Amino acid sequence: VFVDDHLLEKVLELNAKGEKRLIKTWSRRSTIVPEMVGHTIAVYNGKQHVPVYITENMVGHKLGEFAP
């Protein structure tokens, strides 16, 4: 499973602090992992960042699938 390192670091850091804030990313190719559930990730679609709230059903899919 591929997840960009910088994105995973941000998610794990927020989980350690117990925070839930918006994470901006250009990494549409990253796979959604269970650690991301409950976070809102702003995924770049080529024009703007689209906020995507991550749920359990999204695990295993790519971030780009949810930012048309």
Rank of each mutant, 00 (worst) to 15 (best):
K62E: 14
G18E: 07
W26G: 11
F66N: 03
H6T: 14
T40P: 01
V52A: 06
K17T: 12
G60N: 14
V59R: 10
I41K: 01
L12H: 10
W26C: 15
R28V: 06
V43T: 06
I23M: 04
F66R: 03
V52M: 06
V43N: 00
M36D: 00
Q48L: 14
L14Y: 08
E65I: 08
K47R: 13
P34L: 11
R28I: 05
E35M: 11
A16I: 08
L7Q: 00
I23R: 01
G60W: 15
L14S: 04
V1N: 13
S30C: 07
H61N: 11
V50E: 09
H6I: 14
P68D: 08
H49P: 03
V43L: 07
N45E: 08
V3L: 04
G64L: 09
A67S: 14
L7C: 02
K10N: 10
E65Y: 10
R29G: 10
V52Y: 04
T25Y: 01
E56C: 09
I23T: 02
K62I: 12
H61F: 15
K20R: 09
W26M: 09
M58K: 15
K24W: 15
I32A: 05
K17E: 06
L22P: 13
H6P: 03
E19W: 06
L7Y: 00
K10V: 14
E9Y: 09
H6S: 11
I54A: 04
A16F: 07
V37G: 05
Q48W: 13
V50Q: 11
A67M: 04
I32G: 00
K17N: 09
L8F: 10
L12E: 06
T55M: 15
L63M: 06
G60V: 03
H6K: 14
I32R: 00
L14A: 09
K20A: 05
R28H: 07
L63V: 04
I23V: 11
K47Y: 11
G18A: 05
F2R: 04
N57K: 13
R29T: 12
G64C: 10
G18K: 07
I41H: 00
K10L: 15
V50C: 10
I41L: 06
K62M: 11
W26R: 13
K17S: 11
G46T: 07
Y44T: 05
F66L: 09
G60Q: 10
H39M: 02
R21K: 14
V52T: 09
G38W: 08
K24R: 11
M58A: 08
T40F: 07
A42H: 05
L22D: 05
E13V: 07
K10P: 01
F2S: 04
I32C: 08
L8C: 05
P68M: 12
H39E: 00
N15E: 03
A67H: 04
V33S: 05
N57P: 13
W26L: 09
P34S: 12
P34V: 15
T25H: 01
K62V: 12
F66H: 08
D5H: 15
T31D: 09
V1D: 14
A42D: 05
G64S: 09
L14F: 06
F2Y: 13
A67Q: 05
P51C: 06
G46S: 08
I32Y: 00
V37L: 13
R21A: 15
H61P: 01
K62A: 09
H6Y: 14
K20G: 01
K47D: 08
Y44S: 05
I23Q: 01
K17P: 01
I54G: 00
N57T: 11
E56Y: 14
L22A: 06
G46I: 05
T55S: 14
D4V: 02
E19T: 07
L7I: 04
K24S: 10
R21N: 12
T31Y: 14
Y53G: 14
K10C: 13
A67E: 04
L12A: 08
V37K: 13
E13M: 08
K20N: 04
H49I: 02
N45A: 07
M58V: 09
T40D: 07
I54E: 00
G18D: 07
V33C: 09
E65W: 08
D5T: 15
Q48G: 13
R28D: 04
S30L: 03
V11S: 00
V37E: 10
F2K: 04
K24C: 13
L7M: 03
I41Q: 00
A42S: 09
L63C: 03
E56A: 13
G60D: 09
N45I: 05
M36P: 00
R29M: 11
L12I: 12
M58Y: 12
Y53R: 11
H61T: 10
A16D: 06
V59F: 13
V11A: 01
A42C: 05
P68R: 08
E19S: 06
D4T: 03
T40K: 06
N15G: 02
V1H: 14
H6E: 14
I32L: 06
V1C: 14
Y53T: 13
P51M: 06
I32T: 06
